[in-house]
Amino acid sequence: MIRLQNIEKVYRTSAIETLALNSISLDIAKGEFLSVMGPSGCGKSTLLNIMGLLDAPTKGDIKIDEQRTDHFSDKQLAQFRNRKLGFVFQSYHLINDLKVLDNVELPLLYRTSSGNERKKLASAALEKVGLSNRVKHFPSQLSGGQKQRVAIARAIVGRPEIILADEPTGNLDSAMGSEIMDILLQLNATDNTTIIMVTHDEYMASKTHRLVRLFDGVLVQ
């Protein structure tokens, strides 16, 4: 599903060069639930951003669903992300000015779908994460766990094949964290969604199919 070959990412400023990822090669199969662990600053999020096409590698190739993405234009990248990928962030990144339902609808705005269809799909996604009763609430009226569930609903509403989750339980207590993890595991099991999750939590990582570790930008396991 995702193939990374010799991925290198260098951050340059006028004074220094930092090698964030060094020759990373990784294959992730369709339907796999992979967790990525490592100490802070080791390049986990950078790797996830590269897999999510939010950032470009300095060197190396990335293929998603057998397609090379390095030649994509801004518009093509946007469409590809919209169709294939869903994101869950540690700090939720909900739009506070929009209600829950409007937040979940967001990825569908960038497709050709009617308002009714968008509403239907967004309601179904919210039902899946157990938040049907919060559609008219604003994010500020929700708990952290509820916010993350809305974020998951937003990530799955467009039925992407891949979900990239950057520390989805990082801001939550253990009970809430477990709830979110259960939702992700269920998505992976029932919809065969490929999930790549960055986490600091060994227990959460142990529930996934495979764990890879990063240290100073290098895959160590």
Binding site: L54, A78, R81, F87, I95, L106, R154
Partner: peptide, 16 residues
Amino acid sequence: YSEIGVRKAFGASSRT
């Protein structure tokens, strides 16, 4: 900023 990042991540092109 955050909203812009989210919109881009979920499929908004620069033009949109």
